[in-house]
Simulated scan of single mutants.
Amino acid sequence: MGQVILTFFVAYGIVVGGSLCGGLGAFLNEKPPLWSIHDLADQLKIWGLVGALGGTFDSFLQIEKILAGNFSPVFKQLVMIVVAFLGAHMGTISIQWLVQVRS
């Protein structure tokens, strides 16, 4: 259970932290920071997922074990993928709620 919580918050932190730091960079470059933060939150979602899983291929190689009939590692890895996605998605939603950019 501890690893699940850690995975969620790592994905969340990558999206939120990267977006806010990118907004600071946009401000220093005299670009609209709120718009940049909003866009970066969407762009960093996949990186939050990948970063929380610790790499792209290690997680998906566990799925190969389904052919051997060993479902326990596959189920655990699928749970981790879903939790990492939820963390990254919640980070994106939080940032979009925070900045509330109107088109």
Rank of each mutant, 00 (worst) to 15 (best):
G91C: 07
S72G: 02
V50R: 12
G91Q: 01
F60W: 04
L67G: 14
V74T: 02
I63C: 04
S59T: 06
V99Q: 09
S72P: 07
T92G: 13
I95R: 04
D58A: 10
I81T: 07
N70S: 11
T92K: 07
L53Y: 01
D58G: 13
V79G: 01
K76Q: 05
T92W: 02
A84H: 09
L98S: 12
S72R: 12
Q100Y: 11
L67R: 08
V82T: 14
L86A: 11
L86M: 13
P73W: 02
M80I: 06
L61K: 05
V50C: 01
N70C: 03
S94C: 06
Q100H: 13
I93H: 07
V82R: 08
K65S: 02
Q77E: 02
V74M: 03
Q62E: 08
G69F: 15
L53Q: 05
G91F: 01
A68V: 12
D58N: 11
T92I: 09
V83H: 07
S94F: 07
I95P: 00
I66G: 00
F75G: 04
G55F: 06
Q62S: 07
A52L: 07
W97G: 00
K76N: 05
P73G: 10
L53E: 01
M90I: 12
S72M: 03
F71C: 01
L67T: 05
G51W: 05
I63D: 04
A52F: 06
V50K: 10
E64R: 15
K65Q: 06
A68I: 15
G87F: 08
F57Y: 08
G51Y: 07
G87M: 04
G51L: 02
L98E: 08
M80C: 09
E64Q: 15
V50I: 13
M90A: 14
L67C: 09
V99G: 08
I95N: 03
E64Y: 15
I63P: 02
S59N: 10
L67E: 02
V99L: 11
M90D: 12
I63A: 00
D58T: 08
V79K: 09
F85H: 07
V74Y: 03
F60P: 04
W97Q: 07
F85Q: 08
A88L: 06
M80K: 10
Q62Y: 01
H89G: 10
F85A: 13
F71Q: 03
A52N: 13
Q77V: 14
I81Q: 10
Q62W: 00
